[in-house]
Amino acid sequence: METENVRVMWFVPPLLALVASQDAQAIAVHADRNRSSDEQFDALVAGHVDAVVTSMDNVIGWNRRVGPRDFRVVAQIERTTPLTVVARPQLRNLRDLRGANLLVDAPDNGFVVALRAMLRDAGIESGSVRLTPAGGVKERFDALVAGQGDATLLGPPFDSMAQAAGLACIASVQDIYADFPGQGVVVRKAGAVNAKVAAWLQALERARRRVCENPELASQAVVAAGFPRAVADAMAAQNPDSLRPSAEGVALLIAHRRSLGLMGADNDYSTIVDDSMVEQYVGGQK
Rank of each mutant, 00 (worst) to 15 (best):
L167R: 08
A168L: 11
A168C: 07
C169W: 07
I170L: 07
A171M: 14
S172C: 02
S172G: 06
V173Q: 06
V173T: 08
I176R: 11
I176L: 07
I176E: 10
Y177D: 01
Y177V: 12
A178L: 12
D179A: 15
F180E: 12
F180N: 12
P181N: 05
G182L: 05
G182Q: 04
V185P: 12
V187E: 05
R188K: 11
R188W: 00
K189M: 08
A190L: 09
A190V: 04
A190R: 03
G191M: 05
G191L: 03
V193K: 06
V193E: 05
V193N: 09
V193C: 15
N194H: 09
N194T: 08
N194A: 07
A195P: 11
A195C: 10
V197M: 04
A198M: 08
A198N: 05
A199R: 07
L201M: 15
Q202W: 02
Q202F: 06
A203R: 02
A203V: 03
L204F: 03
L204S: 00
E205R: 07
R206S: 02
R206Y: 02
A207Q: 02
A207V: 07
A207N: 03
A207E: 00
A207L: 01
R208Y: 00
R208P: 12
R208G: 10
R209E: 13
R210E: 12
R210P: 06
V211W: 08
C212F: 07
C212Q: 11
C212D: 15
C212T: 14
C212I: 14
E213P: 07
E213W: 02
E213K: 05
N214F: 10
N214H: 11
N214L: 14
P215K: 01
E216N: 07
E216Q: 09
E216F: 10
L217S: 15
L217T: 10
L217A: 08
L217N: 06
L217E: 11
A218M: 08
S219Q: 09
S219H: 10
S219Y: 02
Q220P: 04
Q220W: 04
A221L: 09
A221H: 05
V222S: 14
V223M: 13
V223P: 10
A224H: 06
A224S: 11
A225D: 13
A225Q: 06
G226L: 13
G226Y: 01
F227I: 14
F227W: 03
F227A: 08
P228F: 13
R229T: 15
R229G: 05
R229P: 14
A230E: 14
A230K: 09
A230V: 15
A230H: 14
A230G: 15
A230C: 15
